[in-house]
Amino acid sequence: MIKDITIGQYFPGNSFVHRLDPRFKIGITAVFICMLFSADTFAGLGVAAVFFIISYGLTGLPYKLMTRSIKPIIPIIIFTGFINLFFIDGVPVIKIFGIIITDEALRVTAFMMIRIILLICGSSVLTYTTSPIVLTDAIESILRPLNKVHFPVHELSMMMTIALRFIPTLIEETDKIMSAQKARGAELDSGSFMNRAKALIPILIPLFVSSFRRAEELALAMECRCYRGGEGRTKLKTLSSGLSDYIALSVSILVLCGVIIINMGKVSILHAYTTI
């Protein structure tokens, strides 16, 4: 069922990672992504992996959750891996039916697969431990300087908040409508393409109708509470950063430096090799 999707889902908790300032969490995630893309060697990737495993351990969430969030993207990983396997030059190691797989291809494929997996896992740590509302608050706070150039930061973040807020509601609604139409004999997962497209009408129309109804109700509710945009608006929960946030960010930057140094090390070793 659609309800079982865990990507982008928030799991409430009170761990060190949960308590970090969301702005810093976004920063740390960005640093982690830099680590992954600056790493040239397995050693560098390994350091990033260790960094991820430790930070995930700090969230106190079960490791099983990670495997569930990776599952849906396995086909993509395999597909990209498969393509890489045959199109990279190097020293041939396997030859079957005229297909040549080189050592370099194997290395690049493995490297890339690990990198994609770590990328998904790393960003999952952010969404698993930060509620969507707090996340948009953080984005609003990070983007605030753009107000100077008349970019509607508050409106943007309000739209994001509303969109995020209604995703679960709409998923639930879709689920309900699908059940109701299936109970009336709708066939959603069989038949030709045209038939399947037609079968969507009984689901989309009620969904649209209820979205409009909800939008109207929400607009009315906001109006009743005198909502008038971002000007002079204060927050119930203001974001605050403390010593631990700075420490966490510094640690991640240090690890990034480590990865870069490892890269340089590799270059010099290679260099040494070629000169010999």
Partner: peptide, 26 residues
């Protein structure tokens, strides 16, 4: 046959007749 909670949210057809006929037609 199941009639869900607030079943009026499942209505989608242009006329009442067509909506009631959806199940029997299927």
């Amino acid at each position: 046959g199941i009639v869900f909670q607030y079943p009026e949210y499942q209505i989608f057809e242009e006329t009442v007749f067509k909506d009631i006929a959806y199940g029997p037609k299927n």
